[in-house]
Write a protein that binds this DNA or RNA. Structure first.
Lengths: 186, 186
DNA sequence: TCATTCGGTCTACATGTGTTGACTGAAAAG
DNA sequence: CTTTTCAGTCAACACATGTAGACCGAATGA
């Protein structure tokens, strides 16, 4: 303990390396999905080694679970008008910049069962909140269409890079916002 | 040639086997995507042999290209109201039953570059037609949102099986139809 | 100063997969 | 009847990948 302070301590070095690996994993999972992303590629991009990746994260599955954890959305509640307002705000944010972890989950959800469950859970949670506050016997369908529209826009912009969706979030919401209002208010 | 007629002729047998393989491939590609679908699994489901699959289709890539070919949509043209009407008709059909080949392409597009190009091409084609007929300087954005909404609904229903989207196509279109009209007419 | 921990590197193994080629038997052709 | 073609089967190969374990050297702690 009575030593000259090392330039970087050991725990800090460990933390940095883990972060580099996790960042590289998020990027690659988001770009290529789960199956096409190899432990070796992650290690290379992180400037590290496949063996370390395994030692630190246990397995490719566990690494993915950590890298593709979707941050929970805030609660949605209030009158239909307030609901619409909150939906617009949430979607605007998702269009501006969706976190890399969420993009990784979205990319992988179509081929990776656990990623599918992750996204389903997140979407279902929001959907139930919305449906509970809406009136009308088609509330469930409308909340479903809200989810589908949200999913479609986020995917089309960040993953598919569809023509016309590379506009600014404001321009997009000028078009999509009224749709959400219509769906929320009936 | 002067023989008793065989129960099934050779060319016919060949055609049948090819069809069984193609059907099995479409199903599996649609259920699990490209990477997780193995030639062996396709052969097994088709009641055939991996070697035959290769001989008949050349490679896994070529088989996928044949299995995941998206049928082209009909032309879309006319006034904004007519455009809306045609969009509603097209989407209703996609919600009722999307062909297995299209589902395979949609499932694989997020991880398989050629599948992505396939879907992009189909969507871009329709999108250009729509954008050309719409008025307003946000025509491109609106056509993009139309595409995103369509994609979101089809994916959410057939691939993600989102809550609330298992309703009948009519119920869904009762909610989504007005959105398309709004997008088309501005 | 000495022993221990631990981040990092390298090698190797087991497994699954696309793909190839040899082989068989029956249908087709003469 | 003889030869040729070809659908179908089987075994094997080359390769990539997840994963485990041995090993090294520096930071750590007494």
């Amino acid at each position: 303990m009575r030593r000259l302070r090392a330039v970087t301590t050991r725990v800090e070095q460990r933390r940095r390396t883990e972060t580099r690996i996790l960042t590289a994993a998020r990027q690659l999972f988001g770009e290529q999905g789960f199956d096409r992303t190899t432990i070796r590629a992650i290690a290379t991009r992180a400037g590290s080694d496949p063996g370390l990746v395994m030692r630190y994260f246990g397995s490719k599955e566990k690494l993915f679970a950590q890298a593709a954890a979707i941050p929970a959305d805030g609660p949605i509640e209030g009158s239909p008008e307030q609901i619409a307002e909150q939906l617009v705000a949430a979607l605007t944010e998702k269009l501006a910049d969706e976190p890399a972890a969420a993009l990784a989950a979205l990319r992988a959800m179509f081929t990776h069962p656990e990623a599918a469950e992750e996204v389903r859970a997140a979407m279902t949670a929001q959907q139930r909140q919305v449906a509970a506050q809406l009136s009308g016997d088609d509330a469930l369908v409308r909340s479903g269409v809200i989810g589908a529209l949200t999913l479609g826009l986020v995917i089309s912009r960040h993953l598919v890079r569809l023509d016309g969706l590379d506009a600014s979030p404001e321009e997009l919401m000028a078009v999509a916002g009224p749709l959400l209002e219509k769906l929320a208010t009936g």
